[in-house]
Design a protein around this nucleic acid. Structure first.
Length: 693
DNA sequence: TTCAGCAGGATTTTT
DNA sequence: TCCTGCTGAA
């Protein structure tokens, strides 16, 4: 038997041993999913498949990196020849490769959501669209059209929805703008390579030949475009996808659960393997998880099987208000860590929305509990960092008008909106880029315009920067010198009120530039453009400080996917928070209505993070936007049978335990029969409390 | 052009 | 309650 099969259970073996043809692995939480993927790659190589014929696709760089590391431990440097990549990095690589093939230039900016919105804002100003539109909503619709491969000139909805109409109006203009700015957005990174393959049999054959075996992780999170990309990539049908429909929580971003529910429709003859043995959690936790998720209708019917047979508690604590919830949590965590029942890094506090963690932080600080917050604003999305990136992008791609507009007057140099709009008009009339119009500012604005001086200085700054950065040599240090010349540092020091924040902002910029230096040291042919593209695809800050230290983890339910902790606390189990109010009462302009099932899956994901102990909390009242509200218990709590969970209700009514101890002391005093409520009444009392909750 | 003050809006966020 | 983006005065 292959050495890679030995340590696997029967189902895992089946998944690993299946070599040719489509395979769907439904891997429940904690069922050894990553293990199966890495072992499968090792097995394929052992069976004679060349490592560079294998492609493993994930959603985050972090996941790709971890997988590569595990594989390296198994098979050594062969691992480096396996392509492990995110969908977007793969798309970028394909675009660059194809451009090189056709000897075309391949310098372009990658627009993130902020850039996309800036772009839409610019266009809506130009076409005088009502400014009250929520552009995020419009963008979601455009993105949906792009991922469904609707060409920009062919969209005509009969929809009466003003947002649909706005999207229809803006989509072609947006597409044109990206073209003109030499920019692509995240959707393009998937759609463009797919169209390339679909339009050219030659191109398709090249890639199918390069990647003969495909593995896809987190398949439940793929969208329609990604499915189509996968189909184009594998005419040979050697595709193995791994995922769990019950953990699909990105529907609101266009992820299509149907991709995993209907896998064999897209890849006929697919074999399915269920991995349901859960190695992570205790039985009571898994029973709760199974009860909760069983309420969902549209899913692959399955239940996690516990492998562990030890006990572990699930409890619910109800507080009169959010403050007492927070202060209890602070005290509880402090005592838990102090008693060494759990180490700090074995504990996670999970919540639906970021507003909750803001309430928690002061209490944790008060008790001196160190914590790390997962998610949050990524380094590359910080304002000051985006400004620096915009300057750097301009040296590599002057057509990038969004970056140009972003920094043309940052720091303020006397080129105001009026001037910019006159230049933009001139550019449009003469079919020029905004950058070219700046070069002709004397004609565009008239020779005596007072903006001419600043514009000249600005152009000199950019052109000098470009020349230096193109000259080769130490990209990192040249970039540093260039950024220094832009005056951004002085601007930050001048406009930021507190010295502490100044330090943080400059630190962020420093981190970006240090990243560039270390990239330049590593890369064989470092270029600024490549670095900029890379960081556009980079995941939110991995623990920058690196060290695995003893801190508890705070995370949204979205952010905790793929992690596990001995002790998990899920806070705020209230209707309106989980399920979230926005799901219960969708807003008129919401494009994606993902429904209550996705909220339940979110709860399920949270539950299944817990290994030994799970605590759920809720508050009977909570301040929302400064207003104190009554908060009903989350409807999801109803699917948990009473015998599976210990309830400790600290609101007005005494807890059952308290009632029992009161009763027993009464019994002791006056004898058994007189004081007992009797079992029926007891149950009634319990029911009342649930009702109340 | 710039800056201060106010109105309005406020989930989740792998790339 | 807190942050972002726009309006109006200097």
């Amino acid at each position: 038997m292959s050495r890679w099969l030995r340590k696997l259970n029967a189902e895992q073996k089946r998944a690993v041993r299946h070599v040719n043809g489509p395979l769907l692995v439904l891997a429940g939480a904690g069922s050894g999913k990553t293990r199966v993927i890495t072992h499968r790659v090792a097995y394929l190589i052992e069976q004679g498949v060349a490592p560079d014929n294998i492609l493993a696709v994930t959603f985050t760089n972090k996941a790709a990196g971890e997988m590569r590391e595990r594989l390296r431990q198994m098979i050594g440097e062969h691992a480096d020849n396996v392509t492990m990549s995110t969908f977007h990095a793969l798309g970028l690589m394909m675009l660059k490769t194809e451009a090189a093939q056709k000897k075309r230039r391949s310098r372009f900016s990658i627009f993130d959501t902020g850039d996309q919105l800036a772009c839409l804002r610019e266009i809506t100003g130009r076409v005088h669209l009502d400014r009250s539109f929520d552009l995020g909503s419009v963008l979601a619709r455009i993105s949906a059209m792009k991922t469904s491969f609707v060409p920009p000139d062919a969209c005509d909805t009969d929809s009466a929805d003003p947002y649909d109409q706005a999207a229809e109006l803006l989509y072609p203009l947006y597409a044109e703008a990206l073209e003109a700015f030499a920019a692509v957005d995240f959707d393009d990174l998937v759609c463009k390579p797919t169209l390339m393959m679909e339009h050219s049999a030659d191109c398709r054959a090249r890639w199918a030949d390069r990647f003969r075996y495909l593995l896809v992780d987190e398949y439940q999170d793929t969208n329609t475009a990604q499915l189509r990309m996968l189909k184009a990539l594998c005419p040979h049908q050697n595709i193995c996808v791994v995922g769990d429909d019950d953990q699909s929580i990105y529907g609101w971003r266009g992820a299509e659960v149907r991709n995993i529910l209907e896998f064999d429709k897209h890849f006929p003859g697919a074999k399915t393997v269920f991995l349901l043995n859960n190695y992570r959690s205790t039985q009571p936790i898994l029973r709760v998880a199974n009860m909760v998720i069983a309420e969902n209708k549209d899913r692959h019917e399955k239940a996690l099987q516990p492998v562990r047979n030890d006990d572990g508690r699930v409890s619910l604590r109800v507080f009169p208000d959010a403050d007492s919830e927070a202060s209890w949590l602070g005290k509880f965590l402090f005592e838990t860590i102090k008693s060494e029942r759990y180490q700090a890094d074995q504990i996670a506090v999970l919540y639906r929305s970021n507003t909750v963690h803001k309430a928690l932080e002061p209490v944790l600080r008060e008790h001196g509990i160190d914590y790390r917050v997962l998610g949050g604003t990524a380094l590359f999305e910080r304002k000051e960092v985006k400004d620096v990136i915009a300057y750097l992008r301009l040296t590599s791609n002057p057509a990038d008008e969004i970056s140009l507009r972003r920094v043309i007057n940052v720091p303020a140099r006397g080129i105001g909106p009026k001037t910019v709009s006159r230049l933009a008009d001139y550019a449009e009339q003469h079919g020029l880029s905004l950058y070219k119009a700046l070069k002709q500012a004397a004609i565009a604005l008239g020779a005596s315009d007072r903006a001419l001086g600043p514009i000249g200085d600005f152009l000199t700054l950019l052109d000098d920067g470009r020349r230096q950065l193109r000259a080769g040599g130490q990209v990192g240090h040249q970039a540093q010198a260039f950024i220094e010349k832009t005056g951004l540092r002085a601007e930050i020091e001048r406009t930021t009120p507190s010295a502490k924040i100044v330090e943080r902002r400059l630190g962020n910029i420093g981190a970006l530039l240090r990243g560039l230096v270390s990239y330049a040291d590593r890369a064989s042919k470092p270029s600024l453009g490549e670095y900029l593209n890379l960081i556009s695809l980079a995941t939110a800050d991995e623990d920058a400080d690196g060290a695995k230290d003893k801190r508890i983890t705070l995370s949204t339910l979205h952010g905790c996917k793929g992690l596990e902790f001995p002790l998990v606390v899920i806070v705020g189990l209230e209707d309106g928070l989980l399920p979230h109010d926005r799901t219960l009462n969708p807003q008129a302009n919401d494009h994606m209505t993902t429904g209550i099932d996705e909220e339940r899956r979110l709860f399920y994901v949270g539950i299944t993070r817990a290994m030994d102990e799970l605590i759920i909390t809720r508050a009977a009242t909570r301040a929302v936007r400064g207003r104190v509200q009554e908060r009903p218990a989350s409807r999801f709590l109803c699917s948990i049978p009473e015998e599976l969970i210990t309830v400790d209700d600290l609101t007005a009514a005494p807890s059952m335990d308290q009632v029992r101890s009161m009763l027993s002391s009464l019994r002791d005093q006056w004898g058994a029969e007189g004081a007992s409520l009797g079992p029926d009444k007891e149950r009634q009392a319990e029911g009342d409390r649930r009702q109340q909750a």
